[in-house]
């Protein structure tokens, strides 16, 4: 446990001692700001039945932030250590492979959630100036953040996996981005095919992340989605663990 906490702390700190962490947060905040402008614009127009969180979500900035930041957050986790050789000092310290994988994943998750905090500021401003609790329900905000958290788990874990496979941060980012955007694009495919009743269009419906996130931003927490994200996260973390362990079979 001590090793796990020590590692998590170091990983988290390394986002902030280098510029990476600040750059990622700055870019994310910039995009949140843009989406906020659009959101205000939308709120000025006709009244809409959507909750404010969903109004934010449908601006598409959400996916831009997620898809761009996830690979950048995770790319250095393993690749940099392998590249600089510190992976050897790390793996010859009395720590288990699983501890290492989980610590890196947790650090990435914490950073990812910190990155999303400014959004809360935007929402609070809206609440302040619309002058009423009616526009914003804490439950919807919580479920939006829960959705952000779940999708983050999936993207951080697949980023870990991409990073563990290579010693080049660039390749790690590209592979992470490719897998991430594939998952995202599958939801468009399912929308296209929603009319057909074939088994695979139904299967695609379960992967439709756009649909999932819309529900979360409306305040609906569907346990099927929760199971979907958590099981995929576990799968990717398991794969990462196997990749890290694989040096022992070579």
């Amino acid at each position: 446990m001590q090793a796990f906490l020590t590692l998590t702390r170091r990983e988290l700190a390394s986002f902030f001692v280098s510029m990476t962490g600040y750059v990622i947060i700055a870019v994310a905040v910039f995009q949140m700001g843009l989406s906020f402008v659009i959101l205000l614009n939308n709120l000025q127009g006709e009244s809409t039945p959507m909750p404010v969180t969903e109004v934010f979500y449908v601006t598409a900035f959400f996916w831009l932030i997620l898809l761009l930041s996830a690979p950048v957050i995770t790319m250095r986790l393993f690749a940099l250590e392998k590249y600089s050789g510190t992976f050897e000092t790390l793996m010859t310290a009395p720590v288990g492979d699983l501890q290492v994988v989980l610590a890196k994943f947790f650090a990435a998750m914490i950073f990812y959630m910190l990155m999303w905090l400014p959004l809360l500021g935007c929402i609070l401003i809206v609440q302040r100036f619309t002058g009423g609790a009616t526009a914003l329900d804490p439950g919807t905000i919580a479920s939006t953040y829960f959705g952000i958290f779940l999708i983050g788990c999936l993207y951080m874990s697949l980023g870990c996996f991409a990073s563990a496979m290579t010693r080049s941060q660039m390749i790690a980012a590209m592979v992470g981005f490719a897998i991430g955007i594939t998952f995202f694009l599958l939801s468009f495919l399912s929308e296209q095919l929603s009319a057909s009743k074939s088994w695979w269009s139904q299967a695609l419906n379960y992967i439709a992340m756009r649909e999932h996130m819309r529900d979360f931003s409306r305040g609906i927490i569907d346990t099927r989605y929760v199971v979907f994200y958590l099981s995929l996260t576990v799968l990717f973390l398991f794969l990462t663990y196997r990749v890290v362990e694989s040096r022992r079979w070579k």
Partner: peptide, 10 residues
């Protein structure tokens, strides 16, 4: 290890 890898930023 060989080449003494360290975390440069610490």
């Amino acid at each position: 290890p060989e080449n003494n890898p360290l975390h440069q930023e610490m």
